[in-house]
Amino acid sequence: MRNTMILLCLLIGITASAQKPVTKGVQLDLTKVSNLQIKTAITALQNNDARTWFSLFTPNVIFCYDGYQTSFKGFFRKSFGHEHFTSIDRVENNGLDIYGSFHSDQWGDFKTYFKFQLNKSGKIWRLDVGQAAY
């Protein structure tokens, strides 16, 4: 009986760790995202994990929203818990450019792009975000 309980606990733990990111009941399929660093970033955004999200970026990250440079930390501090992808529709540029449907509590649902640039050490040094037309 004890061995059965241990096995059951292990199986539950393995299953839980393999689950897709969930935000407000939306399970996001990240299988299209081939770049591990970007997959980690999108997972952090989906799971409202600001600590992980911010740790993936350089201290002086350049952030452009709809073509205008703005405060990266200010923008995303307001976004966590209120904005998330609802689908990943297309991935380009070796897994660095993500296109998908997005939900914002303030602005509703729309298509978006997140274009990441990595430095040689794998940190994200630039992120461009905006509405996409595809």
Rank of each mutant, 00 (worst) to 15 (best):
N60T: 12
F75M: 02
W53M: 10
D89N: 14
G100F: 03
N93M: 06
Y134E: 13
L8D: 15
F72L: 07
T52K: 10
F114N: 13
V129E: 05
Q46W: 12
G74M: 01
M1R: 11
F75G: 00
N93H: 12
Q106L: 09
F75Q: 01
I88Q: 10
D128N: 11
G13L: 10
V129K: 10
T70C: 01
W53D: 10
F102P: 05
Y113E: 04
A41K: 05
F116W: 11
S34F: 01
T31S: 15
T23M: 11
Q69F: 01
C9T: 14
R2F: 13
T31E: 15
G25P: 06
D89I: 10
F85H: 12
P21K: 00
V33D: 06
Q27F: 01
N35E: 10
W125R: 07
N47V: 01
F116P: 07
V129R: 11
A44Y: 03
G122N: 06
S79R: 12
G130M: 05
G25C: 03
K24G: 00
F72M: 08
S71A: 10
R90H: 12
I38S: 02
D105H: 03
R2Y: 13
I38F: 04
S71Q: 04
I98A: 12
I88W: 09
T23L: 09
L30D: 12
R126W: 00
N60Y: 00
A41E: 07
N94I: 00
T86W: 04
L127I: 06
T15E: 13
I12Q: 10
A41P: 04
Y134L: 11
F110M: 11
T4H: 15
G100S: 07
G95C: 06
K73G: 05
T58H: 09
A41C: 11
L10H: 10
K120C: 01
K73A: 12
N119H: 09
K111A: 12
R51A: 13
M1E: 09
D128M: 08
S87G: 04
T52D: 00
I14V: 15
I88F: 11
